[in-house]
Nucleic acid binder design. Structure first.
Lengths: 193, 193
DNA sequence: TATGTTTGTTAGTGATAACTAACATTTTAA
DNA sequence: TTAAAATGTTAGTTATCACTAACAAACATA
């Protein structure tokens, strides 16, 4: 039962903190939603911060983008970029709670922001850039600065992620496919005639 | 002296809240930075929320993008888009504190998010879309769905804004010019040969 | 059944922070 | 100079909340 209790607590914490952040969710309320007593939480996690740390442990799964880039590329640019965009959003949505809390607690836990931005930019960006470099060599892409273009591509997807994350219904989740489709098209072929 | 005191308080509050948000900044600390006593703050603003409201009043200047679109367009697409991007970032940076707090307080003050996203998407997006429509008619742009393309363009700039806002030095401020330059280029002419 | 493990209950501690009250001091302007 | 307005000081109230202690109840498993 211990394990299920722990999961219920983490799930409750995640739900509440996604909506209201870390500081604004009292432990008592997490306990209520999880259907356990407050004491149980402290016995499991010691401190409130312990809950957050467990959440980070549980949610910030660092995907092997390396693996993806080594195995799943087809060098059909359109297909690849579309897929990368979806993969990226999948990853970011899994880290949504942590992302939101990292903004909120940026004063207290600056390391948290890095968890997101590290993987976000550093890792993915350089992988994407070297993919672009390969395409440049193949004569498919223009000989631009690949790092800059990777940054542009990921920045757009990041903007999409943030928009869907902070505003409830600003644009709907099932518009995602269309957004990516349109964006990849423009990114590759431009808006001009 | 009243006016200067008020300004000093608001300035101190803005500085501290930009770094650490609303809840995590005690009134006492705002008083210290402003060089006034805590009582003075309460005499000026009644409650802590009063400070935030005054900040919103002061900072969320809603720019007349309409005016801009009516007067400053040259229909040199590259030039226009570059300029629009800069204008947009200027606007967002003026609302930076409010943007950050709106994420943090999204549980308590959901209306706040709208201040940003309203002007952000609704107003600017449709203005940009109709600009695109004109360019499509002129045969300069492809006959795509203008709203979608406007969304893409603004989403990228929004992503850039959020990145520079939440991570201290993720990419530097003076890279802005280059980022916009690169992005406009790719947006217009695409990444492929 | 017996025993150890997990959970519940209750009452309380200590820290923080928003906000108030009352009075003293300084500053401003006529 | 003098009165009013603005600010400072201090001491305290109240509420919230993380966290603890001690004991009781439920539960699991051997």
């Amino acid at each position: 039962m211990t394990n299920k209790t722990r999961e219920r607590i983490l799930h409750a914490a995640s739900t509440l903190m996604e909506a209201r952040g870390y500081n604004q969710v009292p432990v008592k309320e997490i306990a209520e939603l999880a259907g356990v007593s407050e004491m149980t939480i402290f016995r499991h996690f010691e401190t409130k911060m312990g809950i957050l740390e467990a959440l980070i442990q549980q949610q910030s799964y660092i995907p092997y983008f390396e693996h993806y880039f080594q195995t799943s590329l087809t060098f059909d640019v359109k297909k690849d970029l579309t897929d990368i965009a979806h993969q990226y959003l999948l990853y970011m949505n899994q880290n949504k709670v942590i992302f939101l809390i990292s903004i909120q607690e940026r004063g207290n836990l600056p390391e948290l922001s890095n968890l997101i931005t590290e993987a976000n930019t550093n890792q993915l960006q350089s992988l994407l850039a070297s993919y672009f470099d390969q395409l440049i060599e193949k004569g498919i892409l223009k000989p631009f600065h690949s790092e800059s273009q990777a940054l542009i591509f990921l920045t757009t997807m990041f903007g999409y992620f943030v928009t869907t994350t902070i505003s409830i219904n600003h644009f709907l989740q099932d518009q995602q496919k269309m957004f990516i489709e349109n964006y990849v098209e423009t990114f590759l072929y431009g808006a001009t005639m």
